[in-house]
Computed example of a mutant assay.
Amino acid sequence: MILHTFTLTLGSTRPIHGSAHQLRGFFATKFNEYTELHQHNADKFIYRYPVVQYKMIGNVPTVIGINEGAEVLKQIFDEYQEIRLGENTYQIVERGISVRDEEFGISDKIRSYEFVTPWLALNQDNYRKFYTLKNDAERDEFVWKILIGNLISMAKSLGYDVPAQIKCDAQVRFRKDRLKDVSVMTFSGTFQANFLIPDYLGLGKSVSRGFGAVRQITGNTEGGRICSSSSTRGAPT
Rank of each mutant, 00 (worst) to 15 (best):
residue 141 E to R: 14
residue 219 G to S: 03
residue 177 D to G: 08
residue 176 K to D: 15
residue 133 L to M: 02
residue 232 T to R: 09
residue 54 Y to S: 12
residue 30 K to R: 15
residue 54 Y to H: 05
residue 119 W to R: 00
residue 123 N to H: 05
residue 58 G to E: 15
residue 59 N to Y: 14
residue 19 S to G: 03
residue 197 I to E: 08
residue 225 R to M: 02
residue 237 T to E: 12
residue 32 N to C: 02
residue 87 E to W: 01
residue 84 R to E: 10
residue 103 E to R: 09
residue 104 F to V: 00
residue 188 S to V: 14
residue 5 T to W: 07
residue 219 G to A: 09
residue 138 E to C: 07
residue 192 Q to N: 13
residue 113 Y to D: 00
residue 169 D to R: 14
residue 201 L to E: 13
residue 187 F to E: 07
residue 129 K to D: 14
residue 119 W to I: 03
residue 209 R to Y: 06
residue 20 A to Q: 01
residue 66 I to Y: 07
residue 225 R to L: 04
residue 141 E to N: 14
residue 106 I to Q: 00
residue 156 K to A: 15
residue 198 P to T: 02
residue 112 S to M: 11
residue 232 T to W: 05
residue 95 R to L: 04
residue 205 K to E: 09
residue 7 T to D: 11
residue 226 I to Y: 03
residue 94 E to N: 07
residue 143 V to S: 02
residue 16 I to L: 08
residue 142 F to N: 04
residue 126 N to Y: 13
residue 42 A to Y: 10
residue 216 Q to G: 09
residue 225 R to T: 01
residue 134 K to P: 11
residue 71 E to W: 09
residue 162 V to P: 08
residue 149 G to K: 05
residue 78 D to Y: 07
residue 228 S to N: 12
residue 77 F to D: 09
residue 102 E to Y: 10
residue 21 H to D: 06
residue 12 S to Y: 00
residue 120 L to A: 14
residue 150 N to R: 06
residue 80 Y to D: 10
residue 4 H to M: 13
residue 29 T to C: 11
residue 196 L to G: 04
residue 18 G to S: 06
residue 106 I to H: 00
residue 34 Y to M: 05
residue 201 L to I: 14
residue 67 N to S: 11
residue 119 W to K: 00
residue 52 V to K: 07
residue 83 I to N: 01
residue 66 I to M: 04
residue 26 F to K: 01
residue 47 Y to E: 15
residue 1 M to Y: 06
residue 68 E to L: 12
residue 65 G to T: 13
residue 219 G to R: 01
residue 100 R to T: 06
residue 135 N to W: 04
residue 91 Q to P: 01
residue 207 V to S: 03
residue 44 K to F: 09
residue 75 Q to C: 13
residue 76 I to W: 02
residue 10 L to F: 05
residue 152 I to T: 12
residue 166 I to W: 11
residue 108 D to P: 08
residue 1 M to D: 10
residue 100 R to Q: 12
residue 105 G to N: 00
residue 83 I to A: 00
residue 9 T to Y: 13
residue 125 D to W: 07
residue 147 L to Q: 10
residue 45 F to H: 15
residue 203 L to D: 02
residue 190 T to I: 09
residue 48 R to E: 15
residue 30 K to C: 05
residue 158 L to M: 14
residue 5 T to K: 01
residue 110 I to L: 02
residue 127 Y to G: 07
residue 125 D to K: 11
residue 142 F to Q: 10
residue 231 S to H: 06
residue 11 G to C: 10
residue 147 L to A: 14
residue 167 K to F: 14
residue 51 V to E: 07
